[in-house]
Design a protein around this nucleic acid. Sequence first.
RNA 1: UGGGGGCUCGUCUAACGGUAGGACAACGGACUCUGGAUCCGUUUGUGAAGGUUCGAAUCCUUCGCCCCCGGCCA
Length: 563
Amino acid sequence: MSEETSKPKDFIREAILEDLRSGRYTYVRTRFPPEPNGYLHIGHAKAICIDFGIAEEFGGECNLRFDDTNPTKEDTEYVEAIKEDIRWLGYDWGEREYYASDYFEQLYEWAVELIKKGKAYVDDQSPEELSRTRGSLTEPGIESPYRNRSVEENLELFERMRKGEFPAGSRVLRAKIDMSSGNINLRDPVMYRIIHDPPHHRTGKKWCIYPMYDWAHGQCDSIEGITHSLCSLEYEDHRPLYEWFIRELGIFAPRQIEFARLNLSYTVLSKRKLLRLVKEGYVRGWDDPRMPTLRGLRRRGYTPQAIRTFIDRIGVSKTNSVVDIGLLEACVREDLNRHALRRMAVLRPLKLVIDNYPDGQVEYVEALNNPEDPSAGTRPMPFSKVLYIEQDDFRETPPPKYYRLYPGNEVRLRYAYIVKCTHVVKDEQGQVVEVHCTYDPSTRSGEGAARKVKATIHWVSAAQAVPVEVRLYDRLFLKPNPDDVEEGEDFTKYINPASLEVLYPCYAEPALATSQVGEKFQFERLGYFCVDPDSTAERLVFNRTVTLKDEWAKIASKMEASA
RNA sequence: UGGGGGCUCGUCUAACGGUAGGACAACGGACUCUGGAUCCGUUUGUGAAGGUUCGAAUCCUUCGCCCCCGGCCA
C-alpha cells in the first residue's frame, strides 16, 4: 500500500496501517507457515496471497516457515512440493526459508525457563486421563495430581524426557495456567510430547520430545520478528494462550489476526477429504485436473494470474462463506481470453462435404491467432472439400433459435466461406454421417463478402487434421456444498460420476501438432484447453480448463426446461 | 448451562453517523466472421424488535440464527 491516501481494502490491512501509525511496529513482516504433510490447495493460495501480498504492499517481507513439529505426519517430499507451488503462484521468500525444527533448542530452553518460574510441569497422566480431566465445554477441568511437583523434580523429569528415558505417551510437559478457564486452550495445555519414531525428516533422531503447535508457533513468530501473524478463524481462541507464553517469556510480541478460510462451491478443501478422493480412486492423483490442489489447477490449465485475481476478488473478512466456483472460472476465462492463442479443433466430428469444391484442391486461409491481441499474428489453415465440423453445429430438424447448419440454411465457416447445406447422408441406423453443402466462392474471408449469415462455425480440413485426445472436466461434486450431508451419509455420495469425459479421436488443425506440454489455447467456440503431460509423440492430450460462456447452451437448456 | 467469533443483493465483498456501492451470477439490449470478447441497461440486500439521533448497515438494548473449541494434530 502506498503510504498516502490509498485506503486499505480489508480489515487486516487497516489494522496493520494503524499499528504502523501508532508505532506498535515500525516494519511489517508476515509468514506463511505450512505443515509439510500434504499438497497445497486453492485455500492455501488465499493464505499465501494474503501473507505475501500484504508484506509486499507494506514494503516488508514474508517468511516461509515449515511447521514441522510432528514427525509422524511430515515429510521432505511435501516440503519440495510446497515450495514449487508457492513459486509457481509467483511468490518469493528469498533466503528466508525457515523450519520450526530450527528452533527446537531455543524452545527447549524456554520450556526450562517456564518450569523454573513454576509455570510448567511434567504430567505423568495417560492420554486418557488427560482427556478425562480436561472437563467439558460447560464444566471446568480437574487439576492433575502432578501439577504441584517441585521445580527440581520437573527439571529433572523434563531433562530425562529429552534424553529418551521414557516411552512415548508416558509423560508430557504442560503449562500451568487455569484448569477452570472457559477457554479450553488455557486448561494446562500440553507443550511437549514424547515421540520416538519415526525420526524427524530434518532433525533425525536428535529429539524424542516434540513441541506442540501451540507451544511452537507463537515463539517461532517471535524469534523471526513477525509483526503480523495472519491465520484462520479457528485459532482465535488460541490467541490468549499464545499471548500468555509470550508474556511469561518476556519476548517480542507479534500480533495475530484471524480471517476466514476459503470455501468453494462444488468441491472440498480439507486435506482429509482430498486424501480420500485420491486414496479411494475418485481421482487419479493429487494433480488430477479435477482436484482443487494447486497442482491440479495447474495441470487443468489455470494460470497463477487467474488464481491471484480470484483471491484478490473474493476479499478478506471474518465471515464464514462459500465462494461460487463460477467466480474462479470467470477469472481464468478473463486471463486466458487475453493471452491464449486461438486454434480450431473439432471434438465430436461430423464429416462435411462441399460438393462444388474441386476434388483434391487445398487452399490456405489466414486465421487470427488472437483477436484480443493483434500482435499475436496469424496462421494459415488448410481448407479443402472434406472437412470436419462439430456434431452440435448441425441439426437435421433445428429447434427454434438455432442458427447453425441445417438443410437449406447457410453458415460461415470461420475464416473461409459461406456454405449452404443441401442434403445429408445417413447410415443404416439412420444416423447422419455426412452433411453435404455447396459453397459460395465469392464469400472468402477478407474479400469483403457483402452477405451476412447468422452463425459462424469452426471446422478442420479432414486430410490435414491431427487426431488428438481431449479430456473434458466437469465439477467434481453434484451439490454446491458436498459437506451438507444427511445423517449417516458421506460427501462421496455426491461425487459427479461424469466429472471426466475422454474423447478420441478429436480433430485438431495442423498448427496444434507441435504444441508442448502446458501450452494453453482457446479452441474457438469451445473453451480453453491445455496440453496434458500424458501427451506422447503419437497422441497429444488436451485438458479442457473451462468452457467459453455459451449463450446457446443457455437458450437450449431453458427451452428444455420449459418443454 | 462455558468460552470465542460472525450475520449487507443468489454468491463474495464495500460503507467507519450523511444518497447501501462493486465483482460474479441472472435478465434485457447493442455489436460481432467465436451464440466468444466488448459495450449499455435492469432486477435483487442491511437477521428481528426496540431505543439514541435531524439522520442508523454503522451507536445502545433485547432476541434469533450460523460457525469454532473438550488431539500427546496443525
